[in-house]
Amino acid sequence: MIRTEGLTKRYGRVTAVDGVDLDVREGDVYGFLGANGSGKTTTVRMLLGLVLATSGTAEVLGRPMPRGRAEVLPQVGALVEGPGAYDGLSGRANLRLFDAMGPRGAAGGRRTRRARVEEALERVGLAGVDRRPVRAYSLGMRQRLGLASALLRAPRLLVLDEPTNGLDPQGIHEIRELLLELNRAGVTVFLSSHLLAEIEQMCTRVGVLDRGRLVLQEQLDVLQRPTGRTEVLTADPTRAAELLGGAVEHRAAAPGGGRLLVRTDDAAGLNRRLVEAGCRVLTLAPERRTLEDVVLAAARGSGDRPGFRTDDDGGPGAQRDGGDALAARRADEGAA
Rank of each mutant, 00 (worst) to 15 (best):
D23W: 02
H194G: 11
G49M: 09
H173I: 08
T230H: 05
V134K: 05
E249V: 14
R272I: 03
Q217R: 14
S149I: 02
S149V: 10
S149T: 13
L95P: 09
L233N: 07
F32I: 10
A120C: 12
A148F: 06
V80S: 02
L160G: 03
R205C: 09
R123P: 02
G68P: 10
M202N: 05
R111A: 15
T227P: 11
T8W: 04
Q201I: 02
E200K: 14
G56Y: 08
R329A: 12
E333Q: 15
D21C: 12
F98I: 06
P66S: 10
L291V: 11
D321P: 09
R10G: 00
R225W: 03
K40P: 04
G212K: 07
L244H: 00
G207D: 06
G269R: 13
V187Y: 01
R135T: 05
A267R: 15
R153H: 15
A35W: 08
R110I: 12
G303N: 09
G207R: 07
G12R: 10
R305T: 12
P66K: 11
L139Q: 11
Y86E: 07
D221C: 08
P64D: 01
E122A: 15
G301E: 13
L33H: 03
L291Q: 08
S302I: 12
A120R: 05
Q201D: 05
D99Q: 13
E122Q: 14
G105F: 10
R3D: 01
A247E: 10
T57H: 07
I175D: 04
